[in-house]
Design a protein around this nucleic acid. Sequence first.
RNA 1: GCCGGCGUAGCUCAAUAGGCAGAGCGUGGGAUUUGUAAUCCCAAGGUUGAGGGUUCAAGCCCCUCCGCCGGCUCCA
Length: 642
Amino acid sequence: MKIHIKEFGDFHLPSGQPLKTLIPELKKIKTPKGLPVAFKFNSDIIDWHTPIPDETKDLILEPIYPNDKEALEVLRHTASHILAQAVKELFPEAQLGIGPTIEEGFYYDISYPRPFTEDDLALIEKKIQEIIKKNLPLDRKVLNRKDAEAIFSKLNENFKLELIREFDDSQISIYTQGEFIDLCRGPHLLTTGQVKALKLLSVAGAYWRGEERNPMLWRIYGTAFFDEKDLKAYLEHLEEVKKRDHRKLGKDLELFLIDEDIGPGLVLWLPKGALIRKQIEDLWREEHLKRDYQLVFTPHIALRDLWKTSGHLDFYVENMYPSMELENRVYQLKPMNCPFHIFIYNQKRRSYRDLPIRLCELGTVYRFERSGVLHGLLRVRGFTQDDAHIFCREDQLEEELIGVLDLVITFLKVFGFEEYQIFLSTRPEKFVGSPEIWDKAERALKSALENKELAYQIDPGEGVFYGPKIDLKIKDTLGRFWQCSTIQVDFNLPERFDLVYVNEENKFSRPIMIHRALLGSLERFFGVLIEHYAGAFPFWLAPIQVRVLTITDRNVSYGEKIFQELKSAGFRVDKDFKGEKISYKIRSAQLEKIPYMIILGDKEEQAQTISVRKRNGELLQNLKLSDLLQLLKSELSPLSLH
RNA sequence: GCCGGCGUAGCUCAAUAGGCAGAGCGUGGGAUUUGUAAUCCCAAGGUUGAGGGUUCAAGCCCCUCCGCCGGCUCCA
């Protein structure tokens, strides 16, 4: 068969042969990058070992080189095999689960009678280096089920046997390197020596195939690169991530507190964190009122029957705090705000002319999360959703969705989030409402996304049973994605609470409900923000915007005057008049990440000026206070930031 | 919830083999009056996460519980 390899030319590949049979020919052709790592055909990666089916026509292959993202995937796939081989050589009774690549590396799930320790990892890493050094060639074979079963039962690989039993006969392939055999689809490198940098990172328990009732295997995480430099850069990136950890910064900067004597997953917002939250909330309310949302407040508990009507008791109990009984009535801490907003909608008869009705609330909810999943501010048990429910007619759905998307984008932009991953989840197997209305809603979601020119992926069947939804993940400055915003169409609750409006024909119609949260929860969003800004909040958010520092005691009264003027100009200002050296005071302000320092000594006092040091080290000397005030005012509006 | 690791002063961490619980930062007091990321001295601060056990003796060994960290599962 004929194939074309970009940059290399046309070749004849004997049928059923892998690409590596062409290596001698390819080597003769001098290209700047040498032999590729693997090849791309459409969106598939094809390695050197995989035979090309005869019927493939017009085979045009694109070479993949170490700098391509796909090349890393191939490399890491092989890296996981090397890890498995090392483990099997050191611990022959270990049994292999699966060993895929992941976003930033790879892992292998392995069963062993005792946990792997740090020392084991060091040992395994040593063995890995030996295997890499041997530069073992990889090879691929396709087997029928019987042969595959024979091989893996001889190897006593029970997990592999379980997988084989579920495979199609036609797709069972194995890869070998030296003595090591693994069930694998590929793709892989040519030899183990191509892995230039590999590091094991951690071990953790993981259920076989992710199911809680299955046995727990040991998951060894690692990462690998074509170049030692890349590994070093990645490890530095990990350090940076650690430095930005909102739990650490939250403590250092006194933003919030989660204390075991208060209770797990319950957040105390410290004064500085609370000031930041206030800025966000103020902007949020202002922006919502501008867009014709109506602000409401609702209680934290209510009669439990409410949750029976809403259906939460059927599908959400395990996430709800237990009920409490008082005066023969049963109450429930709220896990969601929707039923309250529904009652507000239902407070009077609504006409088609009233719709849409947009009710919004920063509503605090309590959800009982399993103890093992709590994580700083990103996963807590009590949190405030920036919630809203829009009640609209079917013909208004799309416009409302566009409005919500517009608000989301506008709002996220304020914080510098301009890159998203958007997922549209469609009808699952179990659903309420008619397929027709689902289709309509999905179409409305799609065209709303297209209207806002937002790229999205479809998650087929991943919608909640009550309606399709859009989830939006934001990318922070370190390139990590966080799910905050969610927009969900709901056909269920209007039904359950028998919501109606009077239509043009004086008959009852059922409104559609949209649940939406822009920031998700203030707690989570704050956690993300802390990491995004590395604790150095922009001026409009900074809890302390300006600090006045004096050089000697002589300057205290001048300092006090400047402090008062800033304060009455409405800025969040504090002062450091301690008898310390100026460098000491600057250091403290710097560590607290205060945007502006005003430094006052004899010079300034005589000239009635100020010296300003910005957080980034920039110095502004001989300023008049009024000059600074003007500068600060220009930084006040969050929307002017971008 | 499950698996593994961890828990010592407000914070970061030390404490030989089971043998008198320590340092730096921070805090308080004093000295110093300083020019752009750490001046010096003194002091206070602890039921070593909680409870039980072993031992002449437990921060250290054993058991139970709680919490945190890394994952799995789940999710705003």
